[in-house]
Nucleic acid binder design. Sequence first.
DNA 1: GGATGACTTGATATAGTATAACATTTGCAC
DNA 2: GTGCAAATGTTATACTATATCAAGTCATCC
Lengths: 160, 160
Amino acid sequence: MQTVGFGQHDHAACVGGGMKAAEDACEAQGLRLTKGRRRVLEILLQEHRAMGAYDILGMLSDEGFAAQPPVVYRALDFLVANGFAHKIQKLNAYIACAHPGDSHTPVFLICRECETVAETAAPLQSTLGEVAEKIGFKIENTIVEAEGMCPTCRDTETAV
Amino acid sequence: MQTVGFGQHDHAACVGGGMKAAEDACEAQGLRLTKGRRRVLEILLQEHRAMGAYDILGMLSDEGFAAQPPVVYRALDFLVANGFAHKIQKLNAYIACAHPGDSHTPVFLICRECETVAETAAPLQSTLGEVAEKIGFKIENTIVEAEGMCPTCRDTETAV
DNA sequence: GGATGACTTGATATAGTATAACATTTGCAC
DNA sequence: GTGCAAATGTTATACTATATCAAGTCATCC
């Protein structure tokens, strides 16, 4: 057991569980969890913190992987697209998903001091403040960005 | 009148109002709305869309302003820090605040097709989906990031 | 088994975003 | 008018991300 995020947990189980969840999901959906993708996910799970793409790149490079930026970005794109990892826009960093397999809208609590990131869920039904308070996080600034289709583009799309 | 965001409004009034609000706020708080800061805010209000720092830089440069990146980033830092503009993390872009003066938690609705950005408010009390639906925006993906202090860092801070 | 096509990877180059560092100037308080 | 804090000018560089095209891998179909 060690401190991760803002709480305690069995980290070995968390890494194993994360890999297992990804393997199962890929199996089920016919996705290919190739060597590079697998290794990047392992790194994110092991480190259990938000990492920059070039941090990951450095680790791959140390291990003798072909290590050019596109290698990492492709792996990250795959992991993010399939819900195994998330991008923390505020930090330009990536983190393994804490709830792989579940469909969810992640909410990230980012410490401005140490940049530790905790992933929580479903803020939009309850209030975000309540979620944070439970774990002792003091929110000072929230970033809420919703992406989708604006009315104009929806009209254009259906017209075509 | 012209289409801005996803609705209609009196754009001239909106620019004037934005500048007025910033001037008043600076006056009240002893902040200096210097030439460069003022011009960047004017540009953001006039364009009324999310702009990259280098887009703004290009416009300043065309006008004969000293136009190195730090000039723009400093102005943007000032405007964001004091609530006259916001950064759209998802787009690495900046946009004039639609409600200057009010203390608020902005919520941005970003069209993935045209990248038009609408600023709405206070999603955490109601549900984000309701806010979006009212203006015809279809949310496909939300980015919620809360920044603040984690329990560990709060302890350290009070200890010192 | 070989042809096919979709997907993935390798590799080089470059685009885009942001800050460090230090000298200089400006505005204001005393 | 001196001194200090804030703001600006300027150069260089760091950090983040993608375009492009060639080559390899894998499943499928015949």
